[in-house]
Design a protein around this nucleic acid. Sequence first.
DNA 1: GCCATACTGAGACTCAGTCGCATCACGCCC
DNA 2: GGGCGTGATGCGACTGAGTCTCAGTATGGC
Lengths: 150, 150
Amino acid sequence: MVDPTPFLDALARAGLRLTAPRRALAQLIADQAGHFSAADLVAESQARSLGIGRATIFRTLDALSGLGVVERIDLPSGEHAYVGCAPTHHHHVVCSRCGRTAQIDDAGLRTVVREVAQRTGYRVDEHKLELFGLCPACLPAAPFPLQRPA
Amino acid sequence: MVDPTPFLDALARAGLRLTAPRRALAQLIADQAGHFSAADLVAESQARSLGIGRATIFRTLDALSGLGVVERIDLPSGEHAYVGCAPTHHHHVVCSRCGRTAQIDDAGLRTVVREVAQRTGYRVDEHKLELFGLCPACLPAAPFPLQRPA
DNA sequence: GCCATACTGAGACTCAGTCGCATCACGCCC
DNA sequence: GGGCGTGATGCGACTGAGTCTCAGTATGGC
């Protein structure tokens, strides 16, 4: 993604202002190839001399993730990262080498959730599935799994 | 769980020493009804005047999670928490009200993972599924979903 | 019982994320 | 086009989780 308009559209549709820092950040996020952290954006904005405050970056990420156009993911390392995405219910496969992500829809998870609910007696209100591995581009370079296969 | 021996066994089997702080922490963790944070253990150990340092608590949690008898989960709020569990591949359903967790095995997720791999072309090496909702005990008290149903 | 060494507590440190506040500028309205 | 209310901003101080270092301690193999 290199086009920042989805982010700006989402802000506008939510009645939020399209300020210069937000436009710049939308572009910055759109330019990210894979997942990125708040710190990445801070560094990048400093590198490009955008003059955007740290707090503003966190606030904007917060706003965008509230709108569903940016999602926060928890990497296996325990770090937090963000990815730009469509505001629909979905999950991510994350490449552990290049950080690129692919969006996936339900993919049969609904059945799993229903089964878990039946077995445990819990009412499941929310779920989070994250998959980690290697993207097609990185696969040839690393023929052996880095972690236990899932 | 009120019996700390699984934690101690795991430490011993890994060739780690069974020190007084580790025994005390194993008991503390065994006493937890639901999920707990490192900060909870710090507070509890201060309350019980166990004299265990913060660093030791983090180190012990690290060791136990490395052995698979304690697992780190990411709550929807973004906080980290830990749960005691069996050292086998599994996932958790977490009660958003009382924090109690239930352990679930594959439950058909293997099929989902295989399908995702096929659709995206990624090789999936690792996955993480977390489910949040209400446990059977808390269900009667809260008839309506707090979050969007999954 | 001895001893190598794994483990410990204390406290300083780092780093992500938050908060308060004075100032700025977006965008609605005239 | 200009005025104005208010949402957004930057700054910098703050918080809290987690890490690191280091000297001292105690475990458990012999």
